[in-house]
Simulated scan of single mutants.
Amino acid sequence: MKPYSVTFIHALDYLLRAEGGYVNDPADRGGETKYGISKRAYPHLNIAALTEEQATDIYYRDYWLKAKCDQLPPGISLMVFDGIVQHGSTTAIQQLQRAPGVTDDGIIGQRTLISANTTMVSVRFICQRILTQRSRTYARIVANNPSQAKFISGWFNRLDSLMLAVEEVVG
Score class of each variant (00 low, 15 high):
residue 119 T to M: 13
residue 139 A to F: 00
residue 124 R to H: 08
residue 169 V to K: 03
residue 69 C to F: 03
residue 97 Q to I: 06
residue 61 R to I: 02
residue 68 K to R: 14
residue 129 R to F: 00
residue 88 G to N: 11
residue 70 D to Y: 12
residue 149 A to C: 11
residue 79 M to V: 08
residue 74 P to S: 12
residue 154 G to S: 09
residue 89 S to Y: 15
residue 126 I to D: 00
residue 65 L to W: 04
residue 60 Y to S: 07
residue 141 I to A: 10
residue 74 P to W: 07
residue 119 T to K: 14
residue 71 Q to F: 07
residue 86 Q to D: 14
residue 76 I to D: 04
residue 114 I to Y: 14
residue 160 D to I: 15
residue 89 S to D: 07
residue 66 K to G: 00
residue 167 E to T: 04
residue 77 S to H: 02
residue 141 I to Q: 11
residue 97 Q to N: 06
residue 58 I to E: 10
residue 65 L to E: 11
residue 91 T to V: 13
residue 102 V to M: 04
residue 53 E to Q: 13
residue 165 A to F: 08
residue 87 H to Q: 10
residue 116 A to D: 03
residue 88 G to C: 11
residue 127 C to G: 05
residue 103 T to C: 04
residue 51 T to G: 12
residue 49 A to Y: 05
residue 137 T to P: 00
residue 124 R to L: 11
residue 77 S to N: 08
residue 163 M to Q: 09
residue 122 S to A: 03
residue 69 C to R: 03
residue 109 G to Q: 10
residue 120 M to G: 12
residue 76 I to Y: 04
residue 152 I to T: 13
residue 73 P to T: 01
residue 157 N to C: 06
residue 100 P to L: 11
residue 70 D to H: 13
residue 101 G to E: 11
residue 89 S to C: 09
residue 102 V to G: 02
residue 153 S to V: 10
residue 161 S to T: 15
residue 75 G to M: 01
residue 117 N to Q: 10
residue 97 Q to S: 05
residue 98 R to A: 07
residue 123 V to Y: 05
residue 57 D to S: 15
residue 134 R to Q: 15
residue 51 T to R: 08
residue 91 T to W: 10
residue 55 A to I: 03
residue 128 Q to T: 04
residue 144 N to Y: 01
residue 82 D to I: 10
residue 73 P to M: 05
residue 158 R to C: 09
residue 136 R to N: 15
residue 152 I to R: 11
residue 137 T to L: 08
residue 129 R to E: 05
residue 75 G to V: 09
residue 57 D to T: 13
residue 111 R to A: 13
residue 58 I to P: 10
residue 140 R to L: 14
residue 107 I to F: 12
residue 121 V to T: 15
residue 59 Y to N: 08
residue 70 D to K: 06
residue 62 D to N: 13
residue 142 V to F: 14
residue 75 G to C: 07
residue 109 G to L: 10
